[in-house]
Design a protein around this nucleic acid. Structure first.
Length: 361
DNA sequence: CGAATTTGACCCGCGC
DNA sequence: GCGCGGGTCAAATTCG
């Protein structure tokens, strides 16, 4: 679409400016030292300048973060449109499994109301208009909290068929609260709640695909009210992934998954319950061997399956991955106000420490 | 010993 | 109204 024209995507979020700034500050402090020792007012001026610079960099950082957010939103809107288009094309001939339609129908009914209660998410995901037009009466029928969820997104990923665990590493911390064998699929369906934040309403259902046991389908409901768990950089298994949601048209939910497409870096972009989420796979090759990225790599690599490890390493060493990693780190860090505060405290502390040391001379 | 998982029972909505 | 089936609860069990 036109989002590239809306925002300059050539963001440079690397941390290069900081060391430069630091160096400049040091040089200035050092060069002024002889003078400063006689005139402490200059020290204060320098400190003031540095604080001013710090503020300027902070505000710049904030702007960049906002721009990045806009870019992500636009990207996901575009991506959604593409997915819808692809689904429309594929739905012409193929029909999903027909069993279990009742529940899905129920979800269809409940979701328009939910969309109405929480429009912002849909705006982010670019599907606000199509789902909010239906009547609202049916919401009264579903007083239960679970039906207040806004978004339902489906993520599928390829794992080894022998891996019977229904664990989907998506960076969040989940607590399993139930498991059920459903009628339409002999594989058990596991129910998880987000346990990272106490009040987080997000739930997910994980079940192996009836068509291909090596494919795990995770259905996310709701949105996270907290950032992704920074202490657990678990990656999405992200082979990849398509996301569709319920529609208001009354037709049953038709979830389609596409496996095997991925970016050139080990990451996936998904419409997680928290909104658009780009998830990096930072797992060790050992972990990856459980499933996903390796297979993805082999599927797109002309060299075939025996070069998994090399391919994996190649991914990590690619400049675009490095750049992507930097951007992701910068993005997640700059979104955290406590990080900014800590950064400011660290820099000012360093300056003060430096001044103390030099003043003792 | 506390946290996480398992699993049978129960609840509730939907279709007949 | 009844039965079916998905979703949730909570006691028991396992794990670290």
């Amino acid at each position: 679409m036109e989002f590239t024209s809306l925002v300059d995507t050539s963001l440079d979020l690397s941390f290069r400016p900081l060391p430069v700034l630091d160096k400049v500050a040091k040089q200035e402090v050092q060069s002024n030292f002889t003078g400063l020792s006689r005139d402490t007012m200059l020290v204060k001026d320098e400190a003031g300048d540095l604080l001013e610079e710090l503020n300027r960099v902070s505000s710049e950082n904030k702007k960049l973060t906002e721009m990045l957010t806009v870019v992500c939103e636009n990207y996901n809107a575009l991506r959604n449109q593409l997915m819808e288009y692809m689904n429309n094309q594929q739905n012409n001939g193929v029909v999903d499994d027909s069993a279990g339609s009742r529940k899905r129908k129920a979800e269809n009914i409940s979701n328009p109301n939910n969309n109405n209660k929480n429009n912002n998410l849909d705006i982010v995901c670019g599907r606000s208009s199509e789902s909010s037009s239906s009547d609202e009466e049916s919401s009264c029928k579903k007083p239960r909290e679970e039906h207040i969820k806004t978004k339902v997104s489906v993520v599928s990923m390829k794992t080894e068929a022998s891996d019977t665990s229904l664990i989907v590493k998506d960076g969040y911390q989940w607590r399993k609260y139930g498991q059920k064998v459903t009628r339409d699929n002999p594989s058990p369906r596991a129910y998880f709640r987000c346990s990272f934040a106490p009040g987080c309403p997000v739930k997910k259902k994980v079940q192996r695909s009836i068509d291909d046991q090596s494919i795990v389908v995770a259905t996310y409901e709701g949105e996270h009210n907290h950032p992704i768990n920074p202490s657990k950089p678990e990656a999405a298994a992200g082979t990849t992934t398509t996301t569709t949601t319920t529609t208001s048209s009354g037709s049953r939910l038709n979830v389609r998954t596409i496996v095997g497409t991925t970016a050139s870096v080990p990451c996936s972009t998904t419409l997680n319950p928290s909104g658009p989420t780009i998830t990096l796979d930072l797992t060790e090759p050992k972990t990856v061997a459980k499933g996903d990225i390796m297979k993805t790599s082999s599927s797109i690599s002309p060299t075939g399956g025996n070069r998994h490890r090399t391919t994996e390493r190649d991914h990590y060493s690619k400049p675009e991955f490095q750049q992507f990693l930097i951007e992701q780190m910068a993005s997640s860090l700059t979104k955290d106000p406590s990080f900014k505060a800590a950064l400011a405290a660290a820099i000012s502390g360093k300056i003060l420490q430096h001044n103390n040391q030099t003043s003792r001379w």
